[in-house]
Design a protein around this nucleic acid. Structure first.
Length: 417
DNA sequence: TCTGGGGTCCTAGGACCC
DNA sequence: TCTGGGGTCCTAGGACCC
């Protein structure tokens, strides 16, 4: 079998670049990418964190995930723009459409990342690096934003390569380049090494990716278990998963959570928020054609204490009211009366909903299911706000929170490659 | 630290059964 | 019950990704 050639293509400062291009196209003179700027949420509704930063903003040490408050303190002239997800979905799609012209085997890994398999295509594309430059420049010319392309023989090395110097660059990390290009990097730079793992590794004097690569894997396994073996393999460039061609991954669960603009201090309001979350969860569940056997509720207090509670239910369900009922029970069991900042509802253990045994239910949900169907179709035709429960009127709680993203489903991502 | 929201996967402990 | 071991299921929480 001949050597594989994998590209990883990553949009530079994706949301911010897309926002910048969109604004330039609509006649705005300023290019957001050339000044300190971020895409971020609104602190007034307590969604105030940095989602993406421009390269000039990075020079002020502004980090993704940091609060808007602290980012503005570091850079008083910082320009903050709100996210526009439907724009990002369009950009992501246009980006993928170009890539598909070069190879039939492509995988969307996240909204701004694709893997493309160029194995066995040496007749069409002689030199991978040259091909990468061609693709990168074409995206820049046609769509107006820049990407980094990483090239190697597997996904982990390609992904690590695309993370090297940015923006608008092509890099390779072929196996014989691992030591010079990857092992010299600090351990935090390795995919799947987050804060907690980095701390544990550094406490054992493993400071670079090379240190990890050369460490005795048996010892790594002893203190980091299977995750230790995963990152040890990655450090050595060992990874063999295929580029998965447009295969819709089996979804495992559907969730919706939100930070509420105010602290919730009473059960009634909490139940209303849970209803708004459940509405989108249940709608998405039905659209996907599934029923769920497990319902979980998560909660964050105003002091940032997180906890969750879940219950397996006897028979799989997909009705808004049935899920809401369980969610409320779980909340009531979990809540000790603290002010609540954030609530989440999630369903999992999904199964097909085509023939399920409604008649076996103690409670008759037939009417509910019919009602859900009617409401779903009205919303599909006339929009999400066309029908909502009267309990939301004057409640201060949004009738439907989070996103059923209208068109395509959101690109799915697995934490591993 | 004035700290989002969507996911996936793994682990540990307790309950229960044989 | 001063009692062993192993398997499976359930739940909570942590870690990671973008």
């Amino acid at each position: 079998m001949s050597q594989r050639i994998i590209f990883h293509i990553d949009v530079n400062s994706a949301y911010l670049s897309w926002e910048a291009v969109h604004r330039l196209q609509h006649g705005e003179p300023l290019d957001l990418r050339t000044v300190p700027s971020v895409v971020g949420g609104d602190p007034v509704t307590r969604h105030g964190i940095v989602l993406t930063k421009s390269i000039p903003a990075k020079k002020f040490d502004i980090k993704t995930g940091e609060s808007i408050f602290s980012a503005s303190a570091k850079c008083p002239d910082l320009i903050i723009v709100r996210p526009n997800y439907s724009l990002y979905m369009q950009c992501s799609k246009a980006f993928g459409d170009i890539l598909r012209e070069y190879s039939p085997l492509i995988e969307q890994y996240s909204i701004d990342e694709y893997f493309v398999d160029f194995s066995n295509m040496s007749l069409l594309y002689k030199d991978p690096v040259e091909t990468a430059y061609m693709i990168k420049d074409r995206i820049k010319n046609e769509l107006g934003f820049t990407v980094n392309i990483g090239i190697s023989t597997n996904k982990i090395l390609a992904k690590m390569a695309s993370e090297l110097k940015k923006p608008d660059k092509v890099h390779t990390i072929f196996p014989d380049e691992i030591s010079s290009k990857m092992w010299v990097l600090p351990i935090e730079e390795l995919f799947m090494v987050g804060r907690a793992t980095a701390k544990k590794l550094r406490s054992r004097a493993i400071n670079t990716i090379g240190d990890l690569a050369h460490y005795d894997p048996k010892i790594i396994k002893l203190f980091l278990k299977s995750h230790g073996m995963l990152v040890w393999n990655y450090a050595n460039g060992i990874e063999g998963s295929p580029v998965r061609e447009n295969r819709r991954p089996m979804i495992k669960g559907i969730g919706n959570s939100t930070t509420i603009a105010f602290d919730v201090e009473d059960k009634g309001t909490a139940h209303l928020v849970l209803m708004s979350l459940t509405e989108t969860v249940a709608t998405r569940l039905r659209q996907a054609g599934y029923c769920a056997r497990l319902v979980s509720v998560s909660l964050r207090t105003n002091e940032f204490y997180n906890c969750s509670h879940q219950r397996k239910i006897f028979s799989a369900i997909d009705c808004t009211d049935a899920i809401h009922e369980v969610a409320c029970e779980l909340f009531d069991e979990l809540w000790k009366g603290e002010p609540v900042r954030h609530l989440g509802v999630r369903v999992s253990e999904l199964c097909q909903n085509d023939f399920h045994q409604l008649t076996l239910f103690e409670k008759d949900y037939v009417k509910q299911r019919t009602m859900d169907k009617v409401v779903d179709s009205i919303r599909e035709r006339y929009g999400n706000g066309s029908v909502f429960r009267s309990s939301f009127l004057n409640s201060g709680v949004r009738f439907s929170s989070g996103g059923t993203l209208d068109d395509e489903e959101y690109p799915m991502m697995s934490s591993q490659l």
